[in-house]
Amino acid sequence: MNTLRIANLTFREAVRRKALYGAIALTLAILAVYAWGTGWAVNEIYTQTPRGAIVRLALQSGVDVRLLAVGELLLAGLFAVSNIAGLLAIFLAAGTIAQEIEQGTLHSILCKPIARWQVVLGKWLGGSAMLSVYVAVTASATVAIIYWHAGYVPSNLPLGIALLTLKAMLLFSVTMIGSAFAPAIATGIAMFIVYVAANVAGMVEQIGVAAEIEAMVRTGIVASLILPSDALWKMSASAVQPPNPLPALGIKLSVGPFGVVEPPSVWMGVYAALYTAAALGLTTLIFSRRDV
């Protein structure tokens, strides 16, 4: 019960302190630009004769390049959603314990009959609820915009959204570890660096797959084990992208910069979930020993 009380407090605090209003306003602006831009692009894709040589070649061999282009537009939008949600998770979590200790608002809470793990879990649930709402709304809006312009429905939308949400929850819980012992700004910056590095390693892996360079692939896998955020994005992208015809032709290449050739296995998803739980456990362990 106490866990849910803290979760509720965390969620309501974000709503009442209007901390996220700026982020929501900016997101709406980005979605508006996205809707306008994709409308324009889809119009060109479907009404004009393709000019590119590769596109003509593909059309001759019976590949629906138009669908692939639409899929790439969708992935571009979801890529933005995924990264904005990831950074929101990092910056919300960086302050969640640290700032409350600095300000002293935890003093009157922790002296009451409530365990530290309940505070950690409650804050994570509250943060996760916020991020879930954010991801669900923005990802659905992105998908709706593409459907509205091009009539494309992703094959496995719920799984795609669930994986993006898990990615945000993962980043929230990992960042909480830092928040349990370090100042908010230090944690935020450190996690931002780790996050960017994980994304870059994910790209290295993609290139490694395409060029069949084993060492690059392995680098990416190791990075995914250290922080499986990019792996979750790849799994999510693979759930919503149109079928990729290239591997059948013997080319291990994704359709565009946002697409995925070889998505991580389902075990990576399980690993990410366990990783999230372990991060919460570690946060509790550190916070329980922390002097407030």
Partner: peptide, 13 residues
């Protein structure tokens, strides 16, 4: 137990 901390900062929203 009731406790008033020296630093009486609360969730002011």
């Amino acid at each position: 137990l009731g406790f008033l901390p020296e630093l009486f900062r609360f969730h002011e929203w």
